[in-house]
Protein backbone atom coordinates (compact mmCIF):
# COMPACT_ATOMS: atom_id res chain seq x y z
CA UNK A 1 0.00 0.00 0.00
CA UNK A 2 2.68 2.47 1.03
CA UNK A 3 4.63 1.46 -2.04
CA UNK A 4 1.71 2.22 -4.35
CA UNK A 5 1.15 5.60 -2.73
CA UNK A 6 4.84 6.49 -3.08
CA UNK A 7 4.84 5.33 -6.68
CA UNK A 8 1.81 7.37 -7.69
CA UNK A 9 3.19 10.37 -5.81
CA UNK A 10 6.51 10.12 -7.66
CA UNK A 11 4.84 9.35 -10.98
CA UNK A 12 2.56 12.39 -10.80
CA UNK A 13 5.48 14.66 -9.91
CA UNK A 14 7.47 13.15 -12.78
CA UNK A 15 4.66 13.72 -15.27
CA UNK A 16 4.15 17.33 -14.25
CA UNK A 17 7.89 18.01 -14.32
CA UNK A 18 8.35 16.35 -17.72
CA UNK A 19 5.59 18.48 -19.23
CA UNK A 20 7.08 21.56 -17.60
CA UNK A 21 10.55 20.81 -19.01
CA UNK A 22 9.33 21.10 -22.60
CA UNK A 23 6.93 23.98 -22.04
CA UNK A 24 8.86 26.54 -19.96
CA UNK A 25 10.35 29.48 -21.82
CA UNK A 26 13.67 29.90 -20.05
CA UNK A 27 16.31 27.26 -20.93
CA UNK A 28 17.93 27.41 -17.49
CA UNK A 29 14.61 26.71 -15.80
CA UNK A 30 14.06 23.80 -18.18
CA UNK A 31 17.39 22.26 -17.19
CA UNK A 32 16.65 22.81 -13.50
CA UNK A 33 13.33 21.03 -13.89
CA UNK A 34 15.04 18.22 -15.79
CA UNK A 35 17.38 17.83 -12.81
CA UNK A 36 14.41 17.45 -10.45
CA UNK A 37 12.88 15.05 -12.94
CA UNK A 38 15.94 12.80 -12.95
CA UNK A 39 16.14 13.02 -9.16
CA UNK A 40 12.58 11.78 -8.73
CA UNK A 41 13.20 9.11 -11.37
CA UNK A 42 15.98 7.87 -9.11
CA UNK A 43 13.29 7.67 -6.43
CA UNK A 44 11.32 5.28 -8.66
CA UNK A 45 14.41 3.09 -9.07
CA UNK A 46 14.88 3.10 -5.31
CA UNK A 47 11.27 1.98 -4.87
CA UNK A 48 12.00 -0.99 -7.12
CA UNK A 49 14.86 -1.93 -4.79
CA UNK A 50 17.56 -0.90 -7.27
CA UNK A 51 19.42 1.39 -4.90
CA UNK A 52 22.65 1.20 -6.84
CA UNK A 53 21.05 2.31 -10.11
CA UNK A 54 19.23 5.08 -8.26
CA UNK A 55 22.41 6.45 -6.73
CA UNK A 56 24.35 6.17 -9.99
CA UNK A 57 21.49 7.99 -11.72
CA UNK A 58 21.78 10.84 -9.22
CA UNK A 59 25.58 10.99 -9.35
CA UNK A 60 26.00 10.81 -13.10
CA UNK A 61 22.91 12.34 -14.68
CA UNK A 62 21.64 14.74 -12.06
CA UNK A 63 24.97 15.50 -10.43
CA UNK A 64 27.37 15.72 -13.36
CA UNK A 65 25.92 15.75 -16.86
CA UNK A 66 23.18 18.30 -16.24
CA UNK A 67 25.61 20.60 -14.45
CA UNK A 68 27.48 20.76 -17.74
CA UNK A 69 24.20 21.45 -19.59
CA UNK A 70 23.44 24.27 -17.23
CA UNK A 71 26.97 25.53 -17.53
CA UNK A 72 26.81 25.79 -21.30
CA UNK A 73 23.37 27.41 -21.24
CA UNK A 74 24.45 29.97 -18.67
CA UNK A 75 27.60 30.90 -20.56
CA UNK A 76 25.90 31.13 -23.94
CA UNK A 77 22.87 32.86 -22.40
CA UNK A 78 20.56 32.19 -25.38
CA UNK A 79 17.96 34.74 -26.33
CA UNK A 80 14.77 34.34 -24.37
CA UNK A 81 12.53 35.67 -27.13
CA UNK A 82 11.17 32.42 -28.41
CA UNK A 83 8.18 33.51 -30.45
CA UNK A 84 5.59 31.03 -31.52
CA UNK A 85 5.19 30.75 -35.24
CA UNK A 86 2.58 29.08 -37.38
CA UNK A 87 -1.17 28.75 -37.27
CA UNK A 88 -2.49 28.26 -33.75
CA UNK A 89 -5.69 26.52 -34.88
CA UNK A 90 -3.80 23.92 -36.87
CA UNK A 91 -1.43 23.32 -33.97
CA UNK A 92 -4.33 22.83 -31.58
CA UNK A 93 -5.97 20.28 -33.86
CA UNK A 94 -2.70 18.40 -34.29
CA UNK A 95 -2.06 18.43 -30.54
CA UNK A 96 -5.53 17.15 -29.67
CA UNK A 97 -5.39 14.46 -32.35
CA UNK A 98 -2.06 13.19 -31.04
CA UNK A 99 -3.17 13.21 -27.42
CA UNK A 100 -6.47 11.46 -28.16
CA UNK A 101 -4.60 8.82 -30.15
CA UNK A 102 -2.07 8.39 -27.39
CA UNK A 103 -4.78 8.03 -24.73
CA UNK A 104 -6.68 5.52 -26.91
CA UNK A 105 -3.62 3.34 -27.42
CA UNK A 106 -2.57 3.48 -23.81
CA UNK A 107 -6.07 2.43 -22.68
CA UNK A 108 -6.01 -0.41 -25.20
CA UNK A 109 -2.65 -1.50 -23.88
CA UNK A 110 -3.57 -1.32 -20.23
CA UNK A 111 -6.77 -3.31 -20.81
CA UNK A 112 -4.79 -6.38 -21.63
CA UNK A 113 -2.40 -6.04 -18.74
CA UNK A 114 -3.02 -7.26 -15.26
CA UNK A 115 -2.16 -4.72 -12.59
CA UNK A 116 1.55 -4.79 -12.09
CA UNK A 117 3.13 -5.46 -8.75
CA UNK A 118 6.72 -5.03 -7.77
CA UNK A 119 7.26 -8.77 -8.06
CA UNK A 120 6.24 -8.72 -11.74
CA UNK A 121 8.89 -6.21 -12.64
CA UNK A 122 11.66 -7.40 -10.40
CA UNK A 123 11.72 -11.17 -10.51
CA UNK A 124 13.70 -11.55 -7.33
CA UNK A 125 14.51 -8.81 -4.86
CA UNK A 126 18.01 -9.34 -3.64
CA UNK A 127 19.04 -7.93 -0.32
CA UNK A 128 22.53 -6.86 -1.30
CA UNK A 129 22.02 -6.06 -4.95
CA UNK A 130 25.05 -3.77 -5.16
CA UNK A 131 27.17 -6.84 -4.48
CA UNK A 132 25.22 -8.80 -7.09
CA UNK A 133 25.74 -6.08 -9.70
CA UNK A 134 29.45 -6.16 -8.98
CA UNK A 135 29.54 -9.92 -9.44
CA UNK A 136 27.56 -9.75 -12.68
CA UNK A 137 29.69 -6.98 -14.14
CA UNK A 138 33.06 -8.37 -13.22
CA UNK A 139 32.44 -12.11 -13.46
CA UNK A 140 29.76 -12.94 -16.01
CA UNK A 141 29.82 -9.92 -18.30
CA UNK A 142 33.41 -8.79 -17.95
CA UNK A 143 34.11 -8.62 -21.71
CA UNK A 144 31.02 -6.65 -22.78
CA UNK A 145 31.61 -4.33 -19.82
CA UNK A 146 35.22 -3.69 -20.74
CA UNK A 147 34.33 -3.23 -24.41
CA UNK A 148 31.71 -0.65 -23.42
CA UNK A 149 34.30 1.26 -21.43
CA UNK A 150 36.63 1.13 -24.43
CA UNK A 151 33.85 2.58 -26.56
CA UNK A 152 33.38 5.44 -24.12
CA UNK A 153 37.13 6.10 -24.08
CA UNK A 154 37.10 6.19 -27.88
CA UNK A 155 34.27 8.70 -27.74
CA UNK A 156 36.17 10.96 -25.37
CA UNK A 157 39.38 10.84 -27.39
CA UNK A 158 37.58 11.48 -30.67
CA UNK A 159 35.65 14.38 -29.15
CA UNK A 160 38.94 15.97 -28.13
CA UNK A 161 40.42 15.30 -31.60
CA UNK A 162 37.45 16.86 -33.36
CA UNK A 163 37.23 19.90 -31.13
CA UNK A 164 40.95 20.60 -31.12
CA UNK A 165 41.96 23.33 -33.50
CA UNK A 166 44.52 22.07 -36.04
CA UNK A 167 46.76 25.03 -35.27
CA UNK A 168 50.36 25.34 -34.21
CA UNK A 169 49.24 26.54 -30.80
CA UNK A 170 51.66 24.91 -28.41
CA UNK A 171 50.70 26.67 -25.23
CA UNK A 172 47.68 24.46 -24.47
Amino acid sequence: MGEAISFYFLASILTVLSIAVVTVQKPVVAVALLVFNLFFLAGVYALLGAHFIAVIQVIIYAGAILVLFMFVIMILNPDMDLKETGDKGKKFILFSAVSVGFLFFSFKMFEQMAPLTKEDIVSEILEDNTYEIGLQLFEDYIWPFELASLLILLGIVSAILISRKPSQNKSV
Binding site: F39, V55, V58, I59, G63, V67, Y131
Partner: peptide
Protein backbone atom coordinates in the same frame (compact mmCIF):
# COMPACT_ATOMS: atom_id res chain seq x y z
CA UNK B 1 21.31 1.93 6.10
CA UNK B 2 21.60 1.56 2.36
CA UNK B 3 23.75 -1.06 0.74
CA UNK B 4 25.15 1.66 -1.52
CA UNK B 5 26.55 3.38 1.57
CA UNK B 6 28.75 6.35 0.94
CA UNK B 7 27.88 6.49 -2.77
CA UNK B 8 24.56 7.89 -1.55
CA UNK B 9 26.36 10.59 0.40
CA UNK B 10 28.56 11.51 -2.57
CA UNK B 11 25.58 11.58 -4.92
CA UNK B 12 23.34 13.62 -2.69
CA UNK B 13 25.99 16.14 -1.73
CA UNK B 14 26.76 16.48 -5.43
CA UNK B 15 23.19 17.74 -5.86
CA UNK B 16 24.14 20.73 -3.71
CA UNK B 17 25.79 22.27 -6.77
CA UNK B 18 22.40 23.27 -8.13
CA UNK B 19 21.66 25.50 -5.18
CA UNK B 20 24.86 27.41 -5.85
CA UNK B 21 24.49 27.51 -9.64
CA UNK B 22 20.89 28.66 -9.53
CA UNK B 23 21.70 31.19 -6.80
CA UNK B 24 24.30 32.79 -9.03
CA UNK B 25 22.08 32.72 -12.07
Amino acid sequence: NLNVGFLFILGISGMGIYGIVLAGW
